[in-house]
Design a protein around this nucleic acid. Structure first.
Lengths: 138, 138
DNA sequence: TACTTGCCTTCGTGTTAGACGAAGGCGTTC
DNA sequence: GAACGCCTTCGTCTAACACGAAGGCAAGTA
């Protein structure tokens, strides 16, 4: 089973620009080409690309992903480093989730704030139109 | 109580570059200057800046944050739009958290995978050094 | 046959949100 | 009064794409 760049893009929810970018930057060294020089993707490419998406969306840089991919190619001697990389990524992702949850609480507060204003149709006197009075809200 | 740009940066965990950037791009229209033209921040500026940080870290663009700030200045007539913006931000953030959790599961799998290899000291035959064999892992 | 449509390619520029360095001003201290 | 440390503005650099232009190849259509 093979796929075009568009099919892959749709399947993984990323743009064809990104796929070409990854390919051009050495993160997808195995994609083959057909007679017209078009990229041909196999299922194994899809799997690796979805790993790339996972790492990118959890904040790993393209450079580090490339390094990770090279480590995999180098074989077992690099298991330790790969383990360390994934542990770091794990921690970082946990931290980011925690961060987002904190920010979400702030946003929830804002939503509730506006909802109550809209519901009660409060007069202007309760919501001065000066920026200094509407900030994050303690 | 007033603060220098460095104090603000440290307090909020962002760089002075970012603060100047926000200021230059109209998101901090109220920061005052001292006799030497240095920025002077008040507590209200800190509060609004921490809201900016919240919105940025949950993915709102600088442009939209600026728009939000303008809406606040325009007063009550814009409550509806602000409410909509915060609702959108809320949804987006929830989606991102869900996404991150999914990716975290993949990373957890990798960590466990490497850990088990390192623990059992498995031979090469179990971990071929070809990229095609190590992808996301079903 | 010629044309259009539609996909693909490469190449090159544009964008966002900063990061950072250089050049220079102001005020304090040695 | 020279050095130090902070600040300023201005300008270039970066990452990770987004996108347009120019052109190739293949299929369908007039």
């Amino acid at each position: 089973m093979t796929y075009t760049i568009h099919e892959v893009a749709e399947k993984l929810g990323i743009s064809t620009y990104s796929i070409r970018y990854y390919n051009d930057h050495g993160m997808l060294p195995f994609v083959q080409r057909d007679a017209n020089n078009n990229r041909v993707f196999h299922d194994t490419d899809l799997e690796w690309l979805s790993m790339i998406v996972c790492l990118r969306e959890t904040g790993m840089s393209v450079k580090r992903i490339k390094h990770y991919q090279e480590l995999i190619q180098e074989g077992d001697a690099t298991i330790n480093e790969r383990y360390a990389m994934m542990c770091a990524q794990q921690e970082q992702t946990l931290a980011e989730i925690a961060d987002l949850k904190k920010h979400l609480a702030t946003i929830n507060y804002k939503v509730a704030h506006y909802a109550s204003i809209l519901e009660n149709n409060e007069p202007d006197s309760f919501i001065p139109s000066n920026l200094r009075t509407e900030t994050v809200g303690k």
